[in-house]
Simulated scan of single mutants.
Amino acid sequence: MLRDKLLPLLLLPVLVACSDQRAAFEIGPSQHSLTLIRVQNFFWDKTADYSIVAARMPDCMRRHEIGPGGAESRVEVYAPGNDAWILKQGKRLYVVETRSCEGFARLEAEPESGMGPLQGAFQMRSGTLTFVPAPKSEEATAGGATVRQ
């Protein structure tokens, strides 16, 4: 009987083990942003599922699945222009746009025209997903990107 009462308490850490974290890269002064969502099912998992939300409110907002990656993966954000954004996660590249928020695709290689200036990176810091802006010398003014935490 005591075992039946203790079993739920022993399972509690497993039930609360899921980690769902979000961090935003705000673009310009309005509600224009890219938000990375990182879901790790159990703290001991070495992988997490990633998705990106492109938003330019009130006109559009859309979530795109990036898929699984390392639990500590860094996702860099580049600005080639025209409301397009290149995301680099390890060797994988994606392009997402915030004009209509519909466009999203995996790239096989870097664009011939270049990646554009590095805006910063989504990364884990002290167990929390955070957007870290690029140093001022590398940060672009294309698109008027600013960062707010």
Rank of each mutant, 00 (worst) to 15 (best):
3 R>I: 15
3 R>L: 14
4 D>K: 10
4 D>A: 14
5 K>W: 15
5 K>G: 14
6 L>R: 06
6 L>Q: 09
7 L>N: 03
7 L>K: 07
8 P>K: 04
9 L>N: 03
10 L>H: 04
12 L>G: 00
12 L>N: 04
14 V>M: 13
14 V>G: 05
14 V>H: 10
15 L>T: 05
16 V>S: 06
16 V>Q: 04
21 Q>R: 09
21 Q>D: 11
23 A>T: 03
23 A>Q: 02
23 A>P: 07
24 A>P: 02
25 F>G: 01
25 F>L: 15
26 E>Q: 12
26 E>S: 08
26 E>D: 13
27 I>D: 01
28 G>Y: 01
28 G>H: 03
30 S>L: 11
32 H>W: 09
34 L>T: 00
35 T>V: 14
36 L>V: 09
39 V>I: 15
39 V>R: 15
39 V>K: 12
41 N>D: 15
42 F>G: 08
43 F>T: 14
43 F>W: 15
44 W>G: 08
46 K>T: 14
48 A>M: 12
50 Y>Q: 05
50 Y>W: 11
50 Y>A: 09
51 S>I: 08
53 V>G: 02
53 V>P: 00
53 V>F: 03
54 A>T: 02
54 A>N: 00
55 A>M: 03
55 A>Q: 05
57 M>S: 12
59 D>F: 14
59 D>H: 13
60 C>M: 05
60 C>H: 02
62 R>A: 06
65 E>H: 05
66 I>T: 07
66 I>N: 06
66 I>G: 03
70 G>Y: 10
72 E>G: 12
72 E>K: 14
73 S>D: 15
74 R>E: 14
75 V>D: 06
75 V>P: 07
76 E>N: 09
76 E>A: 15
77 V>H: 04
77 V>F: 01
77 V>T: 04
78 Y>E: 02
78 Y>S: 04
80 P>D: 07
80 P>C: 10
82 N>D: 12
88 K>P: 11
91 K>N: 13
92 R>A: 15
93 L>I: 13
93 L>K: 09
94 Y>P: 08
100 S>D: 12
101 C>Q: 01
101 C>P: 01
102 E>K: 07
103 G>C: 00
103 G>W: 00
108 E>W: 10
109 A>P: 06
109 A>D: 13
112 E>F: 05
115 M>D: 05
118 L>K: 05
120 G>I: 01
120 G>E: 00
121 A>W: 03
124 M>I: 12
124 M>N: 09
124 M>E: 09
126 S>R: 12
126 S>G: 11
127 G>N: 12
128 T>E: 15
129 L>N: 02
130 T>N: 07
130 T>Y: 00
130 T>W: 00
131 F>S: 02
134 A>H: 02
137 S>W: 04
138 E>G: 01
140 A>P: 03
141 T>W: 08
146 T>A: 11
148 R>A: 11
148 R>G: 10
149 Q>D: 12
149 Q>Y: 05
